[in-house]
Design a protein around this nucleic acid. Structure first.
Length: 426
RNA sequence: GGACACGUGGGUGAGCGGCUGAAACCACCUCCCUGCUAAGGAGGCAAGGGCCUCACGGUCCUUCGAGGGUUCGAAUCCCUCCGUGUCCGCCA
């Protein structure tokens, strides 16, 4: 959601920023709507003011027993009531149209976001770790996994494609990874652990920007609720419609939840393996900050996500997404891509975004500045994966695979595996 | 799922259909007094929007869970929904 005042004063910049994402100019349309809305509002409010004034006068006239004056005023108000509802409806219609147009627009990219249309234009910031050299041909996880309990067939049989059934040591490995990540984010990185709802109302989906434009990406229940596609939705909306004290900021949250995605439009992509599922687990990081702190928080949160990869000794690279490849709500995004030797490529395992006040406006989340500044200001919100558990499982399988089909457990993870150091084919 | 009750500003909580955008208290801010691990006094303090102003600010509109309705006029009456509480039923 955007600030109309900003658009009024910076129409050219606004369109230029949208153009960087490949969106068409819209400022002129918005301003036309805005102008007519304000003109209607002024007209409507003048009529309302007269009605209110007359109504008060009626009360006074009646109190003084002046029935004649009261009657005259009532006649006048009756006349007003013939025109007022039409005016109110017109104003409402224009306001709704304006709001809907605004609600469908993506965030503006930050100035230091590189230009570009798609992932080919993303900029590599740095690499961490050295990909292991194999003295055999490394396999993909979808070839290593099945004999260790990653059961694609059973999942598909009961639920369809993109659902997987984990059993035995594989299920335990996923649980261990999730616990490990949660401990890292809470004990070391200062995020508060949360266990939020997985089903949310439409307003919550709107608040974080999944609606109205991306309804096809999520699942909806028969009673109209939505399955969260990420716990960013539940965690971020925990502060919706609130006016926070400045002293409460920053608020740093984390949570482990399943995420549900319909993956519409991803036909043919990653059809093999555990990379792209309708249901997957993710440890999410969310931060609510003052506007002036969000950039530093973005860097800090990215490091928090990186800390998991480093502890697991998984090589990765950090990408700065170009304007055309960012999600609609983001104004700046770093992706962490983990090295997958079986695929011989880096694959996304975390995406950390600063949305600025885009979501805060949609959720109406503000804070009251301490000191003499009057009024309220919108907070900034950030979210990132810390990390996607399923994809981390994939990375462990591929990076720690042995020639005999077994997989060693990263040292940091062993305490979470009850001392098991290796997954072996039963 | 059934019955009843409730939903007011940052918080607690008053509020005969016109004098209430809202008492009082707490929190917070400014000032005064006084000082010693405390306090006392004065004042201010909802949000969003329109119009006027270089600005300080002024003025009007909307909002008392949300949406409808009754009325010249609604926080106050009616309906629907959402939420909360209590009791009953069911249940991991």
């Amino acid at each position: 959601m955007h600030d109309l005042k900003y658009i009024r004063e910076n129409a050219v910049d606004f369109d230029a920023a949208l153009a960087r994402r490949g969106a068409s100019p819209i400022a002129a349309d918005l301003l036309t709507l805005d102008e007519s809305r304000r003109a209607l509002a002024t007209e409507m409010q003048q009529a309302q003011a007269r009605r209110n004034e007359a109504s008060k006068a009626i009360g006074k006239a009646k109190a003084q027993g002046n029935e004649e004056a009261a009657q005259a005023l009532m006649t006048e108000v009756a006349e007003l009531k013939k025109t007022l509802p039409a005016l109110e409806e017109k104003e409402r219609d224009v306001a709704t149209k304006l709001k809907n147009t605004l609600a469908g627009l993506p965030n503006l990219p930050d100035e230091d976001v590189p230009a570009g249309a798609d992932e080919d234009d993303n900029v590599e910031i740095e690499r961490w770790g050295t990909p292991r050299s194999f003295d055999f041909e490394p396999k993909e996880h979808s070839d290593i996994g099945p004999s260790l309990g990653l059961d694609f067939e059973t999942g598909a049989k009961m639920s369809g494609a993109r659902f997987t059934f984990l059993r035995g040591q594989m299920a335990r490995l996923q649980r261990a990874l999730a616990q490990f990540m949660l401990d890292k984010q809470t004990l070391e990185n200062g995020h508060t652990e949360c266990a939020p709802p997985l089903l949310v109302r439409e307003e919550a989906m709107f608040g974080t920007g999944q609606l109205p434009k991306f309804s096809e990406d999520s699942f909806q229940t028969t009673d109209g609720r939505w399955l969260i596609s990420t716990s960013e939705i539940s965690l971020t909306n925990s502060v919706r419609e609130q006016i926070l004290d400045e002293a409460q900021l920053p608020i740093r949250l984390t949570g482990l939840t399943p995420c549900f995605r319909s993956e519409a439009g991803a036909a043919g992509k990653d059809t093999k393996g555990y990379i792209r599922q309708h249901q997957f687990e993710k440890v999410e990081l969310v931060a609510i900050t003052r506007p002036e702190d969000s950039e530093a928080e973005h860097a800090r949160m990215t490091k928090a996500a990186e800390s998991v990869l480093q502890a697991l000794e998984l090589p990765y690279r950090k990408m700065l997404l170009c304007a055309g490849d960012m999600g609609a709500t983001a104004r700046k995004t770093y992706d962490l891509e983990v090295w997958l030797p079986g695929q011989d490529s880096y694959r996304e395992i975390s995406s950390i975004s600063n949305t600025g006040e885009y979501q805060a406006r949609r959720m109406n989340t503000r804070f009251r500045p301490a000191g003499e500044e009057k009024g309220t200001r919108f907070v900034h919100t950030l979210n990132g994966s810390g990390l996607a558990v399923g994809r981390t499982l994939v990375a462990v399988l591929e990076n720690y695979q042995q020639e005999d089909g077994s997989v060693t457990i990263p040292a940091a993870l062993q305490p979470y595996m009850g001392g098991i150091t290796k997954l072996e084919i039963p």
